[in-house]
Design a protein around this nucleic acid. Sequence first.
DNA 1: CAGTGTCGTATCTCACCTGT
DNA 2: ACAGGTGAGATACGACACTG
Length: 322
Amino acid sequence: MANLRLEIRHLSMVRYIADLGTVTAAADHLGVTQSALTHRLREAERRLNVPLFSRTGNRLFLTPAGERLYSTAVMVLDDLVRTEEDVSLLGKQQRTVVRLGQGTYNRFHWFPGFIEYLGEPELELDIVARAAREPLTTLLDGLADIVTVHGMRRERRRLRWLRLANDPLVAIMAPSHPMAERDFVTADDFVNERYITYSLEPEPGFEWTRLFRSARQRPRRISVVGVPEAIVDLVRAGLGVSILSQWAVQPEIDDGTLVARPIGQAGLNLDWWVVVRAEEGNDSPPMRVAHAMVAWSQLRQQGTAQLAFSQPGDHRRANRPE
DNA sequence: CAGTGTCGTATCTCACCTGT
DNA sequence: ACAGGTGAGATACGACACTG
């Protein structure tokens, strides 16, 4: 491995100067003097031979190189904190940590209910946010013990797949949006809307092939926001419409800040899977949690064809505005 | 509030010594 | 011969005082 030019203290320095806006505030947070942090910053820039911050008056702003380092710093530092906690727990041999990742959506409103259902106090469930982007890679790299993914099952020798649920994709919009008046929506309804999606790379969402491509229609205005959670905020603010898994937006549907409508008269559903590494034994903590997730999901479906983690209810009429 | 110069302290490296 | 301890010198780091 190549010799690293930066150390953990440099990463935390970049993170807190960027977060807090000044060297003085960051130094205070890190428990060193402003002078020490200025030295540390200059040393990091010297080692990398690139400025990490631009100076405007008394404020510091990340350069493109700084931005790149910042994103890694946040990820590494958060991971390190979690790892220390895991190791600490393992050292005490009090609890077993099972790390759970979720493909695409970092939405965990279902989590407290599941922990209660699981009823295994010796198991500590930890959330791995980075799994949202590449869940299977995160699992295979050993950074998560369980991930949930949607779409087609992709057999790999190193993975075990358990079917979790078949959950509807729904069109989401602000309650005041004209589409909220419809019983269901079609590809035509999106043509003149601003369609907000989280990514067009490496491939557009499932709805792209199942809805827009087959209908030979597509939205004229598309905004890529990168984070599914941001879609919810933008749609709720009336800045566009989108298509997401119903379970992911169930809290907003329930509190009436979003309206969800089925895709087409028959609806459009998506398979969800829970995946663990193949080497996990049937009685291993990750497999126990995975089986519990499947059982819990089935219980909550209550005979309907919808929802993995969302509340039971008629999604067509659940929050139809009066 | 950021940056600089100076100085004290902590840490690291290396050579040497000692005990087994 | 080897492992571990000790001390000197080099280097890195941070604090203080100060400037712009």
